[in-house]
Nucleic acid binder design. Structure first.
Lengths: 213, 213
DNA sequence: GTCTATATGCCGATAGAC
DNA sequence: GTCTATCGGCATATAGAC
């Protein structure tokens, strides 16, 4: 009550204000990178969108490359956590088909609805400078491994035929899901509906079911 | 026989030398755009790779945007022709599954083996400036329509179940095929093998075949 | 922490010589 | 047809005031 206003009680408030600015910069940068790609976004544009000047960014980040690496890693982390969380919320005896559809829905929701970081990843990684790609590789590999484990588990539960090439399946599946970023429009139908449609197509395929004997 | 050497018999040779330069520029630009995206490639880099100076490009093209539009359209044209040609080479009574696998293989070959123009398309379109996207839309729509017709035909021949959502199938299929550009390495196995694996996964799906009764 | 000012260099595009 | 030279502008990054 009697503490002088001129002396902050701790550094925490100052630190968290810096943290808030830093987070705001990351948020607007993720959105801009998602829209225009790595080379298409200038630090000036990011600074302006975050309400500060270009030079001030260097208080928070060492370089444009360091900034984008942080966004790429955060994007993979976000979708990885979303998928793991959704899957672990299932009953332990859920069947393989439910497992697949749940993971597909969680991935699409992170990509299309929740996270500019995740979608920035899909757009930026392929054409980022080589040092950026190299520094993001480990996080990406871990997410690929998460899907390989998911597919193996679904196979163990009898939802995937024994002779399927699981690596090819993972590449096809994630490629198809990520590509939806290029055309998905929420007003044409929600993420839920898309996830259901894709899960069905990927699981049953295009071929007609053999007639019951 | 006695015509003076100092007078060219026609303008054709001169014209075709300009045409050759123009084609060389388009070829190297397609490769660079494929690797680095639209904003990641400068006209100076294109000129250097084609063996001339930046200013000279303006003799052949009005602007960077005009150049990239030409590459995008050529890329769609190339894959569209490859697919139509491959399909029309099939016997008239080919079954629907053969039709699908043939189209998938032709698309992947154009994307991964034959045409920098086609692969530049996948990388560049999504983040090109809006006027560029607008000017390329018609050609893209025509290729989408080609696949819609293909899928409808396969359905008519009994290779696709009657209740399938053909638009979703087209988006999933082309999304998965185009994504292979991001990871495909020829030394891990050829385009042929990839096409066969993908056609099988897309047609049969991941689910085990129901046991015969 | 954020500012202004600036260093240094590349960008797309144009003008005019050859 | 291609060159050199150059325009005005924007890029990343840094220095130092406040």
């Amino acid at each position: 009550m009697a503490s002088p206003e001129t002396i902050p009680v701790s550094d925490a408030p100052l630190d968290s204000r810096a943290e808030a600015t830093r987070r705001r910069v990351l948020d607007v940068a993720a959105r801009l990178f998602r829209e225009r790609g790595y080379a298409g976004v200038s630090l000036r544009a990011i600074a302006a969108a975050a309400g500060l000047k270009a030079g001030s960014l260097y208080y928070h980040f060492d370089s444009k490359e360091a900034l984008v690496v942080e966004i790429l890693d955060e994007g993979i982390r976000a979708v990885h956590e979303a998928v793991e969380q959704a899957v672990s919320a299932l009953p332990a005896d859920a069947d393989g088909a439910t497992l697949l559809e749940t993971a597909i829905r969680a991935h699409l929701e992170s990509l299309l609805r929740l996270s500019d970081y995740t979608s920035a990843n899909v757009r930026v990684f392929g054409q980022a400078p080589e040092p950026v790609r190299r520094r993001s590789l480990a996080v990406r590999r871990a997410y690929d491994a998460c899907w390989d484990a998911l597919l193996a588990e679904a196979q163990a539960r009898g939802a995937i035929r024994a002779d399927a090439d699981l690596r090819a399946a993972r590449l096809l599946l994630l490629g198809a899901l990520n590509a939806s970023l290029e055309w998905f429009e929420p007003r044409r139908g929600g993420v839920e509906a898309l996830a259901a449609r894709y899960a069905d197509l990927l699981w049953h395929g295009l071929a007609p079911r053999p007639a019951a004997a």
